[in-house]
Amino acid sequence: MTFKAIINGKTLKGETTTEAVDAATAEKVFKQYFNDNGLDGEWTYDDATKTFTVTE
């Protein structure tokens, strides 16, 4: 399945996608990506659209 992340950061904005077997796996991938890029913020997840949003 394809999962999307919308990034609303102070220094980084945009979208990225990942292929994962479930939402928990996708969340781990996205959180690692955000940690690697120095992002920290509020997380939400919309199961209907398979979209994570992080707002810094």
Rank of each mutant, 00 (worst) to 15 (best):
F3C: 05
T51L: 03
N37L: 15
T18P: 00
G14F: 15
T18D: 01
N37F: 15
T49P: 00
E42Q: 11
Q32Y: 05
N8Q: 12
K31W: 05
I6Q: 05
T11F: 13
F3T: 01
E27T: 04
Y45K: 01
A23K: 12
A20N: 02
Y33S: 03
D22L: 02
N37D: 05
Y33F: 12
N35L: 14
G9R: 06
Y45R: 00
T2K: 12
T44M: 07
K28Q: 11
F30N: 00
F52T: 01
D40N: 12
K28H: 08
T2W: 13
K13D: 05
T44E: 10
Y45V: 00
Y33W: 15
W43Q: 01
E19T: 13
E15R: 05
D47A: 12
E42L: 12
F3Q: 02
G14K: 12
D22Q: 01
T17I: 09
K31V: 06
T17W: 14
I6D: 02
L12T: 08
V54S: 02
F34G: 04
K13R: 13
I6W: 04
A48G: 08
K10G: 09
Q32N: 07
L39N: 04
A20E: 03
K13H: 12
F52S: 00
G38H: 09
E19D: 09
T51F: 01
V29P: 00
T55K: 07
E42D: 12
D36Y: 09
K13I: 10
K28M: 11
Y33A: 04
D36H: 08
A26C: 02
E27D: 00
D36F: 10
D22T: 04
G41T: 08
K10C: 14
M1E: 09
A26K: 01
F30V: 01
K10P: 10
E15P: 05
T44V: 10
D22K: 01
A24T: 08
K10W: 12
I6E: 03
I6C: 08
T17Y: 14
T53D: 02
E15F: 14
T2A: 06
A26G: 00
T53K: 04
V54P: 01
T2F: 11
T55R: 05
T49H: 04
E19W: 15
K31T: 04
A23F: 10
G41I: 09
N8R: 11
T11P: 06
T17L: 09
K10S: 10
A20R: 03
E27W: 14
K4G: 03
T44N: 08
T17D: 04
T53C: 07
D47E: 13
K28N: 06
E42Y: 10
K31Q: 07
E27I: 09
K28C: 08
D47Q: 08
D46T: 03
K4R: 13
A24L: 10
T53M: 09
N35S: 14
D46Q: 03
F30P: 00
A5F: 15
T51H: 01
T16Y: 15
F30R: 00
G41W: 15
G41L: 14
T25A: 13
T55Y: 12
T18L: 12
T25D: 06
T53V: 07
D46Y: 03
D40A: 12
I6T: 04
K4L: 07
W43A: 02
L39R: 04
A5T: 04
T18H: 04
F52Q: 00
E27A: 10
F30T: 00
D47G: 06
D46C: 08
T25C: 07
F3G: 02
V29F: 15
T53P: 00
D22W: 00
T17G: 03
T11E: 09
E56R: 06
M1W: 14
K28P: 01
F52A: 00
T44I: 08
D47Y: 06
A24K: 11
N37C: 15
D22S: 05
K28R: 12
G9K: 07
V29E: 05
F52C: 00
T11L: 11
T55F: 09
T11C: 15
D40H: 13
K4W: 11
